[in-house]
Design a binder for these strands. Structure first.
Length: 364
DNA sequence: AAGACGGGGTA
DNA sequence: TACCCAGTCTT
């Protein structure tokens, strides 16, 4: 069985494409899951939900989406919000640059497009946080335009349907998949077609143990015919995660804990967290965090007392967190906006990443 | 082209 | 533990 060549699809018969479209769309109409952003057609809802869904599961997104549109029902209200508030509603969802981008995007849409989300790819791609996938999703789902919306699910489905052995982690493969997506998308119902591909990838054409016996497209699936569905798509192995050592300081005043706002760039940017210093795990355990608090905020403390050591694994990084209890001796009178004493009850008023929330709650 | 960037589910 | 995922931006 030879590898599929993408150009083969340009030779596909119109009837075959029609058959694919019809089978997929009718399957989607019958079998799709209910989601809050599917109840009405609202480009703002499509935009917010698609950004939240980037690298994130539906079940995780739903409560965040509902809170978000409740607080910011329109683009204009989002544009007027404080970034701090946007970030607070995003806390726990991960990839926090998405929150920053969506806020910047709302301002741009209000300033340049009078609060209306653009209807063409060129303008959509100018909005921070919208790349080729999200632009295609908005065009097809919110505006019924026959654009491709190719994400990881769709690449998996395509690689199996058309027996594509090219590595899907390569940029060139994604480009070819998008060409393919444009070639096969339904002109009459691009929304159901694109969502159908993704829903199929999520429910039937899963990464492991695909449920081919329930698949509405098994009759045209070349991987299924060849019996190789389990070994597709081809994807380059990821590098091993690198380890990062981090010292955390635990300072308590009554029932309050000291939190610091993280720097505006890099990991967990702009979120509130325990005071942290990266890159040290040596014989002088805890010394760096004492120094950091002294130099940055004029906080004098007693010697560090080890409390707990925890590791937290991110996608490509393993944090080794060493937590030290520090007794507060004195503080300067200067009011630093980037440090706060916060009680456990007040924590939900701050954008605190899950990794830190877990540590803090464990201590209390 | 490669690296940075969270978190939760699953085996 | 290791791998997976409804991606985008920066370098």
């Amino acid at each position: 069985m030879g590898a599929y060549k993408i150009n083969d699809w340009q030779n596909l018969k119109t009837e075959d494409i029609n058959e694919l479209q019809h089978a997929l769309i009718s399957w989607f109409e019958k079998n799709h899951r209910q989601m809050p952003w599917r109840e009405t057609i609202n480009p703002y809802y499509t935009w917010i939900s698609e950004v939240m869904l980037q690298q994130t599961r539906v079940d995780t997104v739903i409560p965040y989406f509902l809170r978000f549109i409740d607080k910011f029902p329109t683009v204009k209200q989002l544009a007027k919000a404080d970034e701090e508030e946007v970030l607070r509603l995003w806390a726990g969802l991960g990839y926090y640059s998405r929150a920053k981008n969506i806020h910047r995007g709302a301002k741009l849409i209000c300033e340049v497009y009078d609060g209306k989300i653009p209807e063409n790819q060129k303008e959509l791609l100018k909005i921070p946080g919208i790349g080729s996938y999200t632009a295609g999703a908005i065009l097809s789902i919110a505006y019924e335009k026959p654009a491709a919306a190719v994400d990881g699910n769709v690449m998996r489905v395509f690689s199996r349907l058309f027996l594509v052995y090219k590595d899907i982690s390569e940029g060139s493969t994604k480009k070819e998949m998008e060409k393919l997506g444009e070639a096969v998308v339904s002109a009459t119902n691009p929304s159901a077609f694109n969502q159908g591909l993704m829903e199929l990838g999520a429910l039937i054409c899963t990464p492991n143990s695909p449920k081919c016996s329930s698949c509405p497209l098994s009759f045209i699936c070349r991987a299924r015919r060849a019996g190789v569905q389990e070994s597709l798509p081809v994807k380059k192995k990821k590098e091993a995660v690198k380890s990062v050592n981090m010292e955390l300081g635990l300072l308590q005043k009554g029932d309050k804990v000291l939190l610091t706002k993280r720097p505006p760039e890099g990991l967990l940017a702009n979120l509130w967290a325990l005071p942290a210093v990266e890159g040290t795990a040596d014989g002088n355990a805890g010394r760096s965090i004492v120094l950091e608090l002294q130099e940055s905020y004029g906080i004098e403390t007693s010697d560090p007392e080890p409390v707990v050591e925890k590791s937290h694994v991110f996608t490509h990084m393993k944090w080794n967190m060493q937590l030290f209890r520090l007794k507060l001796l004195s503080m300067s009178d200067i009011d630093y906006p980037e440090i706060q004493w916060v009680s456990l009850k007040e924590m939900d008023q701050y954008a605190i990443p899950t990794a830190f929330l877990k540590v803090i709650k464990e201590i209390k």
